[in-house]
Design a protein around this nucleic acid. Structure first.
Lengths: 227, 227
DNA sequence: CGGTAAGTGTTACTTGAGGTAACGGTTACT
DNA sequence: AGTAACCGTTACCTCAAGTAACACTTACCG
């Protein structure tokens, strides 16, 4: 008799969630071996770190590009875990900027090899919409652009610059962070302070041209960086 | 009798400068094929574009990394040819900033594939001191840092931020340029204007905190961006 | 005019990393 | 015993970077 009235096949249920967990384990193995050996690790290195052979790896990832993507997504989680509280916190605008910047710098400082691996992964040959680095920058820039745009529109100013300004601000932190990662001629605390200073001046200048005179020692209401 | 009184061997003199010229020709071939086929071209593509076989190419370049370096240096020449006049020109500070930014954006707009090829070349496995993109950014940032530092010191201010601020400003233009290159939702003229605006505000804010109230419609004396 | 310097040409080949074929094994369920 | 979904392995393929090894060309030298 056909078993159509029974539940799902338990042999199938047995493995529920297993593939996702396995994939996550391989991503962690990749992060571990990248930390150890640098951003140029190969699939053989990742497999060895995970204690499997390459065919096993390829059962869970389409190709190396797919692994880059998965690692990039995990790196984004780690970054947002750190930056999220700083983004959500309220307080004096300048201090908030400094905390956000510092959160980012602390992440790239703790695992510079992972940062470089992820950035390198942006150049692997594949559709640009799967570029995690570009996606992350866009995410942050879009949130910034929304806030800047809201402010500018509130004062009947041209908000056309909100988006490029947001991308410019993201570029400030990333490029200064890259330079600092290579040189480390100053402490992270100092760099965060300097970057917060110039970012604040940039934003302050834009607001002043909109007729707003903001106090850096106070919260900027209703400026919100999180949804 | 020994030929020590004669000039150098003409068989040798015949080829004087030839290798440098040949190498330059291969660099131009690379730029041409990259413009046509995109940043992922291989050595076979470059050789075919130059009308030679791969061994000939490898007589002039140590490896692909060496080709990346040579192309990056050529791209830097092209960039400086365009930016040099803008950097050297005097005039109202804000307008100067806009011309410099526009010069840069015009270069990456004219040959985006070359730009991507050069940036991708930064990730080829080799010593970081041969990274032309990092070198170019450092060159510009160092010139900026010198000027900012000079100004800050003239007013007894802490100039420790000059270098990170310079790298931050470079990052502004580069990241906004990358975003614009991918999207192109606005004209280059508009983007240059927006970027000049936020850069001016950032610099103005730094100067104000040093007690300087600069007029964007006037030259900033003795601010010089060229040696 | 043969020898030489410094170039050129070519095909066949090597190397190594990404990726896969093809097999057998394990465990729990039906 | 058959099956689902995982696991293991080695040998192998593919392809782009890079090279070995040969012959040829042109202009100069003695």
């Amino acid at each position: 008799m056909a078993r159509t009235v029974k539940g799902p096949d338990a042999r199938r249920e047995r493995w529920k969630g297993h593939r996702e967990q396995r994939r996550a384990e391989f991503v962690e193995s990749t992060i571990a071996v990248v930390a150890k050996k640098g951003p140029d690790v190969g699939m053989e290195d990742v497999a060895a770190e995970a204690g499997v052979s390459k065919p096993v790896l390829y059962r869970h990832f389409t190709d190396k590009s797919d692994l880059y993507l998965a690692v990039g997504q995990r790196a984004t989680e780690l970054l947002m875990d750190r930056m999220g509280p700083a983004l959500a916190a309220d307080g004096p605008i300048r201090a908030r900027i400094e905390r956000i910047v510092d959160a980012y710098l602390s992440v790239i400082e703790e695992n510079p090899n992972l940062y470089r691996f992820v950035v390198k992964g942006s150049f692997v040959d594949r559709p640009v919409e799967k570029d995690v680095v570009a996606e992350d920058k866009n995410l942050i820039a879009t949130a910034l652009a929304r806030i800047l745009g809201d402010y500018l529109r509130a004062f009947d100013m041209d908000s056309g610059g909100a988006e490029p300004w947001a991308h410019a601000l993201v570029g400030m932190v990333q490029n200064a962070g890259d330079w600092w990662l290579d040189r480390q001629t100053m402490s992270r605390e100092n760099l965060s302070d300097y970057l917060a200073t110039i970012i604040w001046h940039a934003i302050d200048g834009l607001l002043r041209s909109a007729g707003v005179q903001a106090d850096p020692a106070k919260p900027l209401t209703p400026l919100r960086l999180v949804d």
